[in-house]
């Protein structure tokens, strides 16, 4: 197992290098540059001013030179500074990370706790009225933009019913009030969680139906095992494998997966910051987020692969 992990880690190094080259190139060939995006329509700043700022940050250098400089700094632990806030990128990410994790972990738990049981329930009651309702709801939720659902929920539950606040992490002046924080968390976590639960619901439903048709399940029943035992030991364990696979991207998703919800719910998180940085062409922020995301995805899939061995005894690593 140790050799396997070491091999995977070593394989990740060239992979991350390739990702960095592709990301750097893509971001830099996208239209517009950061200071031009900020100042081009401002008659108080001239072309000369824009070029001066670009030169200050080396944006007038050839791309390979810029990339080499960026890579050198990253290898020394320096992801650079935002062009606009002038602050170290890692500092900006870390200060928002707790908020993001609070929302994404909560939303993930809602997704999992709602999606998986409902998927199983739906499969076990295939073509029943409840199954049909769940399928229609799933299609409905999937077809609507997530941010729109968020906006509608804000208007209804915050604006009309006044059950929840319009957004933010806490009421100003109640920073240490846990109940107040939970009150602010409920709506975004539920909306983001329900949005995410649809995927789990569908996977679990289809996988459960698939596994129920397998010979070993029929054999288990023929041996006289109880429903509960068959479900726990044979059906769910196997049906859960695709859900487990999807967890590979979860670590990265926990950091940046809630960008739209963070924006709609005025939730000061990493995703919202990166989204804004992308629009403003704030390259150091986007690149740092990309590389952190890529690293987390690689780590996530490594954990998933290791976890297979526990979930599925047929899988062994040499």
């Amino acid at each position: 197992m140790r050799r396997y992990i070491l091999r995977r880690v070593l394989q990740a190094i060239p992979l991350l290098f390739v990702i960095s080259v592709i990301a750097f190139t893509l971001y830099r060939i996208a239209p517009n540059t950061p200071f031009r995006a900020e100042l081009a329509l401002n008659p108080e700043a001239t072309e000369e001013d824009i070029r001066r700022l670009e030169a200050k940050y080396g944006l007038d250098q050839p791309l390979p030179v810029q990339y080499a400089r960026w890579l050198w700094n990253v290898l020394h632990g320096d992801f650079g500074r935002s062009y606009f806030t002038k602050r170290p990128v890692m500092e900006m990410i870390l200060e928002r990370l707790p908020n993001t994790l609070t929302l994404t972990v909560s939303a993930f738990l809602v997704s999992l706790l709602a999606g998986v049981p409902l998927g199983i329930f739906s499969a076990l009651h295939r073509n029943s009225p409840i199954d049909n309702v769940l399928r229609v709801v799933a299609v409905f939720v999937t077809s609507l933009p997530s941010w729109w659902i968020g906006l509608v929920c804000i208007i209804i539950f915050a604006g009309q019913l006044r059950w929840f606040p319009h957004g933010g992490v806490y009421t100003i002046g109640k920073e240490w009030d846990l109940l107040d924080r939970l009150h602010h968390l409920v709506l975004p976590a539920l909306v983001a969680g329900i949005d995410g639960s649809i995927g789990y619901l569908r996977i679990m439903r289809s996988q459960t139906l698939e596994v129920l048709r397998q010979d070993y399940v029929r054999t288990a029943y023929a041996k006289g095992l109880s429903d509960r035992l068959v479900m726990w030991r044979h059906v769910l364990r196997n049906a859960f494998l695709p859900v487990w696979t999807s967890f590979g991207g979860l670590l990265a998703g926990l950091i940046g997966g809630a960008a739209f919800f963070e924006t709609v719910f005025s939730w000061p998180g990493v995703g919202r910051m990166v989204l804004e940085a992308a629009l403003k062409r704030d390259f150091p922020v986007i690149l740092a987020a990309t590389m952190i995301g890529a690293t987390l995805i690689l780590i996530g899939y490594l954990i998933v692969d290791i976890g297979y061995a526990w979930l599925d005894p047929r899988v062994r690593y040499d």
Partner: peptide
């Protein structure tokens, strides 16, 4: 100053007195 998503949310907050 409170940071809000857009004018839809802002208007809802105005109505709610926030």
């Amino acid at each position: 100053t409170r940071i809000v998503a857009d004018q839809t949310v802002e208007f809802s907050m105005l109505k709610a007195g926030e």
